[in-house]
Design a protein around this nucleic acid. Structure first.
Lengths: 344, 344
DNA sequence: ACGCGTCACTGACACGTGTCACCCTCTCGC
DNA sequence: GCGAGAGGGTGACACGTGTCAGTGACGCGT
């Protein structure tokens, strides 16, 4: 790349990106004045005619300030970084995320999702730190370590918050207690008299962070009740479900928590095709309370998950940013409750 | 919009963010040397002992370069901006996006999703331009205008690409021909002898960009065949579907394209509950080829949509960045084909 | 004439980085 | 002895912005 010193002859489009200096020149004022006008700084008084001239010049040139230069000078930004998950997320999650983003913007933050596919934990943290975000809200799935938190804080992040199943040293944590989902579903099955309870564990990679805790929760629910839990690996494919259904009677199960409504629908169809009566012979419970589950016959029982609303989380971020010295707190991100329909 | 000018700004942690100057001091070399070493610039020769001293100093301080300062100095960045949709996107789309991001990163681009909720078209474009991205890949839904493209290009963006249903002046366009989906489904219904064909139009806001073209496509499919198309507004709720099913016979429809598989499942259940025989009395076709559709009885016919793979789009972006002067091109993002099962 | 205050504006620096043009010190060939 | 060349580094500038301290002009009271 050759540098052009004065006359930018290499611009292909024939025009350089306008800066505040260009605006100043066109308006016949100093650059400082341009800055004052465009940020309408209250501490300095600029006459109305000058203000207008500056605004018109900016408009004419199509001037847009340079965010990087601005935050470099300011020494900080109001950028909140959300490492993008590379896992499939359900509609519940994506709605929550949208709400969260919207709320942060209301609080005058700039939300940036930034993917870091294929990087190791510490390396990813370093990549995020380069952007000098004021806060980082990371999914548990992004495998942020205590080391990573340290890197981020050292690079100026005033708040690091994890959304996940477990805490990370030094970071605020919003715990999604996935265990409660499995626990609620299984407790319900036990209460309605089921004794041998299957728990579907999806084989799809990336779901482990959800399925593991849900299985653990199920185990907690049966502890001391005499009922037992049987893990059931399952791929989200018809053949896999049919194979499972074929050996259903051999397994001797009278109830199943199917991970979520989609897996439940898949399994329920396979069971019915194999002449296993639902709920008479085997009760089925899903999770997420999808509309589609209500359309089945029998209607699918489910665990309804209510997530913290985005606005609440946004306010938590804002508080954490304003009080970086406050000790990391842990709180619940979601609540679960069983919705009983006909399949259990 | 009140600005919070109040600014804590005192470093509470007592330690500033380390810069390359700090590294230089600690290593006992100049800042230039630090820069050369850490970017291992090949044109300049630095002795191995010095290199090691610099690397160790950087490690000890936890130095992370400042991306903003870097790209300010460089005059450009390799950031690709993806305005975040605030519409619900299906799994098809989100998988495509992940793949796309991954491919861009392979090409050494930095992918940033940036939401601009609640801003008007031109204002949003200005906000994106502040980040000085080298390329912008916008969903049609983000309502990018020709004016917006102009702003972005003037701010240094070398490529602007829209993913949507229609072209935008000055931008490369990847057209999702939603019309073809409706056309394929409806043509199939006509070919199998249906004459009065309903087309479900979701009432949910944000889906209009898909449903409108699909309806138009359906109209194209019946043109000259003697068959007719009837738009059917529907909310994604059981009551809405039941109400529609109740007046089904009055409508005299013998076929329906239900927008997608989810709406199809909703409608099919309502039809069956209202004793409308599928497919004998009315044929039903969905779209997206969800697994769940295959579980219905009768199995749901659908339109399978194959999207351009992410890598392809990433290469298109790369080419557009490298040849900014090339005229905007338009190409297809997806292909549709009918998968006939039992419901039609 | 002078001091003082206000108004409207400007000059200059700092933010953190990359890179170009030098500079110094050796060594070698003759 | 001395120029040539190479090895190993450094000084200084530029990128675009925000903001502090200052500056000239002007009005006003004495």
């Amino acid at each position: 790349m050759s540098q052009s010193t004065e006359q930018p002859s290499e611009r292909p489009a024939g025009r350089a990106v306008p800066t505040s200096a260009d605006v100043a020149r066109l308006a016949g004022v100093s650059r400082a004045t341009v800055s004052y006008v465009l940020n309408n700084t209250s501490a300095v008084r600029i006459s109305e005619p000058t203000r207008r001239r500056v605004r018109e010049a900016a408009e004419e040139l199509g001037y847009v300030p340079h965010a990087a230069a601005r935050s470099l000078r300011a020494g900080h930004s109001r950028m909140v970084l959300l490492p993008t998950p590379h896992v499939q997320v359900g509609p519940l999650y994506s709605q929550f995320f949208n709400e969260f983003q919207w709320a942060l913007r209301r609080l005058d933050y700039t939300v940036v999702q930034y993917g870091s596919v294929g990087l190791e934990a510490e390396e990813a943290a370093r990549a995020w730190a380069e952007l000098r975000p004021v806060a980082v809200v990371a999914l548990g799935e992004s495998r942020l370590t205590g080391q990573g938190v340290e890197i981020l804080k050292r690079s100026g992040a005033r708040a690091v918050i994890t959304l996940g199943t477990e805490r990370v040293e030094g970071a605020h944590a919003l715990v999604m207690d996935q265990g409660r989902v499995g626990e609620a579903a299984t407790a319900h099955l036990v209460e309605t008299g089921r004794r041998r309870i299957g728990v579907v564990v999806p084989e799809e990679p990336g779901l482990a962070m959800f399925s593991g805790p849900r299985l653990e929760g199920a185990r907690r629910a049966v502890a001391g009740t005499g009922a037992t839990v049987v893990p059931l690996p399952l791929r989200y494919e018809e053949e896999s479900a049919n194979a499972l259904a074929a050996r259903w009677r051999a397994l001797g199960l009278d109830g199943v928590f199917a991970y979520n409504d989609e897996y439940a629908m898949l399994l329920m169809r396979a069971l019915q095709d194999a002449d296993v009566a639902v709920p008479a012979e085997t009760a089925v419970v899903g999770a997420d309370d999808l509309l589609l589950g209500r359309l089945l016959r029998p209607r699918l029982s489910t665990v309804r998950i209510d997530m913290v609303i985005g606005r609440e989380l946004a306010e938590l971020v804002d508080r954490a940013v304003r009080e970086p010295e406050a000790p990391p707190r842990t709180s619940d991100l979601m609540a679960s409750r069983v919705v009983r329909r006909e399949s259990s």
